[in-house]
Design a binder for these strands. Structure first.
Lengths: 113, 113
DNA sequence: TTATATACCTTGACAGGCGATGTACTAATG
DNA sequence: CATTAGTACATCGCCTGTCAAGGTATATAA
C-alpha cells in the first residue's frame, strides 16, 4: 500500500513546492493533503517534512511566517518564492524526463530500438 | 542532462534486475547498457553498481559466477533467480503506482477532482 | 482528568550513493 | 619497451535524506 521512502526520495522537495504553488499553507495541512491526494500511499513523516522545509527555506525556495490564529496550536505558514517557482518548473521537467527513462529501463517490454 | 542520484534511489535495484531479466550479464556491460539505453542520462557509479549487486545477491534476487574468458579482464556474471523475478514483477507494479501518484502530486495541473 | 486531535520541533542512528583509490589484464602508440 | 587507454572488479569512508523516538503546547470531547 504505502510507497517506500526511497522511491520518493528526491521528489519530496518537489512535492512540497507543488503544494505551495496552490497557495500559502502550513506543514500539518500540507502533510494531510499529500496523504489524501495520494490515497494514503504517501505518508511523509513529520521529521522528514520539517527537515525539508528547513532545507527549502535555506535554499531560498520558500519563506515562512507565523499565522495569527488566536485559537488552537500555532501554525507556521510557507510561501513559494520566485526562486522556488523556478525550481518547481525545473523539477517538473526533470520528472518528465525521469519518468520516460524509467519507463524504458524498467518497463516490462521485451526490448526496444 | 544527467538525472541526479536521489531521483533514482530506490530504483537502482529494479533497473539492474530488469537488465538481468534479458539474460545473464556482467557489471561493466550492464552499466554501459543502462547508460546507452538512457541516452547518457543515467550514469551509475561503479561503487553504487557493485554495492547493489552485493545487496541483491545477499537478498537472493541474483546469483553470480565467474566467466571463463581466457583473455582480457575476468568478468563476474549475474543470473536472475526466481526470487529476483518475483521481486521485479512487484517492483514494476510499484513503479506504475508511484508514477501515477507523482504525476498527480507534482503534475503542473491547476488542481484536480 | 484523560484522551485525542492539532501543530511544531530536534536528536541520533541508519542506509544508499559515490569520490577516491586500488588491482589486474590487454591492446595500441610512440 | 614504457606509457596510455580501455576493460573489469572491488573497498573505504564521507555525505545526505529519512525517520523512530522523544519533546512542547493548545483545544475539545468523553
Amino acid at each position: 500500500m504505502a510507497i517506500e521512502a526511497d522511491l520518493l526520495r528526491g521528489y519530496t522537495d518537489t512535492i512540497l513546492l507543488s503544494q505551495l504553488a496552490k497557495g500559502d499553507s502550513y506543514g500539518y495541512l500540507i502533510n494531510k493533503r499529500i496523504s489524501e491526494s495520494s490515497g494514503g500511499s504517501i505518508e511523509m513523516k513529520e521529521a522528514t517534512l520539517y527537515t525539508a522545509f528547513r532545507r527549502l527555506e535555506k535554499e531560498g525556495c520558500i519563506r515562512s511566517y507565523w499565522g495569527d490564529e488566536n485559537t488552537g496550536a500555532r501554525r507556521r505558514y510557507y510561501t513559494l518564492t520566485e526562486e522556488g517557482a523556478q525550481r518547481l518548473i525545473q523539477d517538473r521537467s526533470t520528472w518528465r524526463e525521469t519518468r520516460h527513462i524509467l519507463d524504458k529501463l524498467i518497463g516490462d517490454d521485451a526490448d526496444e530500438e
